[in-house]
Design a protein around this nucleic acid. Structure first.
Lengths: 161, 161
DNA sequence: GTATTATCGTTTCATAGCTAACGATTATGA
DNA sequence: TCATAATCGTTAGCTATGAAACGATAATAC
């Protein structure tokens, strides 16, 4: 077990909180710790050079894959609010990495599309990003990677994340 | 494999990006997805009632465990910047959940402490939070929980997250 | 056909979060 | 001693984020 976890559990068990499911606490704590760590690492070592935050990168990533996509779908995919998508695509548009276009039939719908410059940035950026991804999980064997992925998918399905 | 993952990998493999380590991509993608999902769920279903964000909750949680702690340690523990800690503890102080005190010897250091009201909120809040934690991982057996925790710890150690 | 309801994107306003710059303080070194 | 460096917390200025409200539009009901 990691040092801070020991300390925390020690003190937690002294609080008047009734019985705790320590296995559940550990899963949640460590998932969030890894997620925060990899987000910070990516922003610091890769994304900052391009002036992109984690979320704006993930939006650009979606755009590079889907070419044209409604803002509503973007919000679902990145698990953020429509308002956030509004702001981020506005920022990306300022950087000329994407542009927006209202649907001619249903004018409530806005499509977001990646620009040539956006594609170019992505093709330069993604290999760097992917290199870090591989590094980050390199402490696990391939079988362990497959295993943790399968377990996480189970959690995602159960909770509809 | 989850549906969106299939789509994404399909399109990714058509991009001119060279070879990809798909196992690594899956690990990183699913870790972040679970983390985002549980954060959103907690904020929506538990923390919003108390006007707390995920981060301010985690700060309050640390305070309830450590009683008095330097802002620097808080920043490390929550993996956010010192500036963020300044802002969040200021907000918590406004809600009378904590207070700050400068060290008498070394006046560069500020200690943050939880108030009686803060403890009270935590004792009411944490059982609810913990209940959701248990729910979220309830799709996994205890052995699976231990397994995913051990694998994540390996990633944390390797990357010093 | 018209009124109601639902949906979509945006704006507004608050907090969260970062970096960089700053001021205060302590530690170090000549 | 006294100047320089190092460290700490805060502030300023920016983007990110969500909830709620808004306006425009489309779908539905009558």
């Amino acid at each position: 077990m990691l040092e801070e976890e020991k300390d925390t559990i020690n003190r937690l068990s002294k609080m008047p909180l009734g019985s705790l499911d320590l296995d559940a606490v550990s899963v949640v704590t460590n998932i969030y710790r890894v997620a925060q760590g990899l987000r910070n690492k990516m922003e610091r070592e890769v994304l900052s050079k391009y002036g992109l935050s984690w979320t704006s990168f993930s939006i650009l990533y979606d755009l590079s894959i889907w070419k044209a996509i409604e803002t509503k779908k973007l919000a679902e995919s990145a698990a953020v609010s429509k308002a956030t998508i509004s702001n981020i695509t506005k920022t990306l548009e300022k950087k000329e990495l994407c542009y927006r276009k209202t649907d001619t039939r249903d004018r409530r719908i806005t499509y977001v599309m990646i620009t040539a410059k956006g594609i170019q940035v992505m093709e330069e950026l993604y290999p760097e990003f992917h290199k870090r991804e591989v590094e980050i999980v390199s402490g696990l064997t391939v079988n362990e990677q497959k295993s943790v992925t399968e377990l996480l998918r189970k959690v995602i399905r159960k909770n509809q994340f």
